[in-house]
């Protein structure tokens, strides 16, 4: 899609006057609808519709074995400390620009942004029992001398220093009308809330081997505590002002954007700048401040909505 110079000027002037092409003001968010648990084969899923932007996120949990010897071998390319692995795919059906290699860099940018957003070790505070909302204590390491253990998402432990849950978070962009960063982060948060991990008991065999016993009751599962999981808010600078929740048209005439991750304790979890022109420090301060306010508002609305969904089920 392309915009003509007169269209650009129309959008810019509108934003200067605090009214956008769809009637919103600069800091208005579009309505979004959230559905969860749509994909039956995944551990958790969510679909977000933000006006015409539509993203689908699926969470698959897998057991990863960590081998101490393998860790040190140079052939191992995967970061063994990572418990959350993100992958974003922009469908060519969403926009012809995404066809072939067109979405290659966008996919990486989106996935890396999510990765940055979840880079803090305490993103997932813990697990709780789905049925009675009581806290579930993951098995802790008996030997204390392990650095990796303490520094990372230890709540996803099955057997300390041996087996962990790895969550593969795959997002598909089905339709795009701007603001993909925010949409993806909100959908990911909802998908994590929806994720159910089976209860697993590890049984030490006679020798080294460990066998797993999965709980018989399919409803007796574990959920993820998303209290500390952030979402991101993208501030886009158009002309001399900045706006939130841009449409594709507005994105085409932007100068720069700043994607800011915010969590419920109003801490900043990630910042990423995009776009080609620069920003001056005072604007950045303002943007972060505004993002904090907007982010907290979205988080509280979202938490309420997620609770409602849970009660309905």
């Amino acid at each position: 899609m392309k915009v003509s110079p007169s269209e650009v000027s129309f959008i810019q002037k509108g934003i200067e006057h605090n009214i956008r092409t769809d009637g919103r003001s600069r800091v208005d968010y579009r309505h979004f609808s959230l559905e969860s648990g749509e994909i039956v084969h995944s551990n958790g899923s969510a679909r977000l519709k933000l006006s015409d932007t539509e993203v689908l996120v699926g969470v698959k949990a897998e057991i990863t074995q960590i081998n101490k010897e393998n860790n040190n071998a140079s052939g191992n390319n995967i970061n063994v400390n990572k418990r959350l692995i993100f992958n974003v795919d922009c469908c060519p059906s969403a926009s012809p620009e995404f066809e072939g290699k067109g979405s290659e860099f966008l996919n990486i940018e989106l996935a890396q942004q999510l990765d940055r957003l979840y880079s803090h070790p305490n993103v997932i505070v813990g697990l709780y029992n789905t049925n009675d909302n009581t806290k579930y204590d993951p098995p802790t390491a008996t030997t204390t001398a392990d650095d990796n253990e303490n520094s990372n998402n230890s709540s996803l432990t099955i057997v300390p220093n041996k087996y962990y849950w790895t969550l593969y978070i795959d997002a598909i962009v089905l339709d795009s009308d701007g603001n993909l960063f925010d949409a993806l982060s909100i959908a990911t948060r909802a998908a994590l809330f929806n994720t159910r991990l089976p209860k697993i008991k590890a049984i030490q065999g006679e020798y080294e081997e460990i066998t797993f016993e999965v709980n018989d009751d399919p409803f007796d599962t574990l959920s993820i505590d998303i209290k500390n999981v952030p979402i991101c808010v993208t501030m886009t600078k158009i002309a001399s002002q900045f706006v939130i929740d841009t449409t594709t048209r507005e994105e085409l005439c932007m100068d720069a954007r700043l994607t800011i991750g915010v969590n419920s304790s109003s801490n900043i979890c990630s910042i990423q700048k995009g776009g080609i022109s620069g920003l001056d420090p005072p604007t950045i301060n303002q943007m972060i401040n505004t993002a904090k306010v907007v982010g907290l508002k979205i988080l509280s609305t979202m938490d309420q909505a997620l609770l409602d969904i849970q009660l309905l089920k």
């Binding site: 400390n81 940055r116 880079s119 803090h120 070790p121 305490n122 520094s151 990372n152 952030p230 700043l258 969590n263 109003s266 801490n267 900043i268 979890c269 990630s270 910042i271 990423q272 700048k273 022109s277 620069g278 920003l279 001056d280 420090p281 950045i284 972060i288 401040n289 904090k292």
Partner: peptide, 28 residues
Amino acid sequence: EGAGKILVSKMPSHNNITQLIQTGELNY
């Protein structure tokens, strides 16, 4: 690892920040 990291790149004579990346959780 996991602590807050910040990278700034800047054009000093314009006082323009051309890149800003942060990972990890930090307060304002």
